[in-house]
Amino acid sequence: MLKRFRISIILLMAAPILSSLAVAQNQPPPAPRHDISGTWEPANGPQDGVQADGVKAMPNDNKPQHQLPYTPYGLQAFKSHHALEGAQAVLPGFFDDPRDKCEPLGFPRMNFYNLRETQILQNEYKVVMLYQYATTWRVIWTDGRELPKIVDGGVAVGGEVKEPRYYGYSVAKWADDTTLVIQTIGMMGEDRVWLDTAGRPISDQLRVEERLHRVDHDHLEWSVTIDDPKIYTKPWVAMDKFPMKLEDPHRDVMEQYCSPAEMERYNKLFGDPSSGPASHAPKQ
């Protein structure tokens, strides 16, 4: 009887220790120092990064807390865009999203449109992001070079003026052991690149700050701040600690592309007739 009692006491005492050991075994290892490489996917499911109604933290849904601080020029630029999604969506016949002509999405829209599986590679000189959509990449320099300066017609690198780019010019520094801070300027503005699918604008004065914080070995948080004094009266957060999780390194990421030929066929067979009056039916 006494023996049974002793065993019960020992088991009761050991239970919390065994339980905490089990929890610890399920915890991912800590984040490695200065390393965000890996194949990452949205932690809350593959659709979490689609952001159909606009940027994740500030969707265009008419809620007061999601109103953007437009300058008069910014508001005018927004109104000149005719988006297919969001609270100001126009009828399908009247939208002019460059996406549907298979134009490059550009940056930072690349972070706000179908942000899906994203491969990050890095070495001592640079971090490279390989996006799933449109098989597009960005190079982010970590070799200590300075961020170029915004000048008329593009950016100044040393004494040379270089052209604006769809994906801009990016440099990054480690803010701490597990947080990379990326600064990007020199993007195409206004009509060439939209900020998001809701038609929010950006200009050639845009500065973007991204913070990629590796929370632990398997999880990353991605934040993006928009600072564009020509369009917005103050900086604002477009993506706030968007959660990504690490995938199997052997993962072979599928293509997601925009093909003008497939788009044309889709519109002819389905997009056009489904959007307009019945008289637009395709000939069969």
Partner: peptide, 13 residues
């Protein structure tokens, strides 16, 4: 003046 129809949102359904 007919719509320049194309890829659509959810409104068509």
């Amino acid at each position: 003046s007919g719509p320049l129809l194309a890829h659509h949102g959810t409104a068509a359904f």
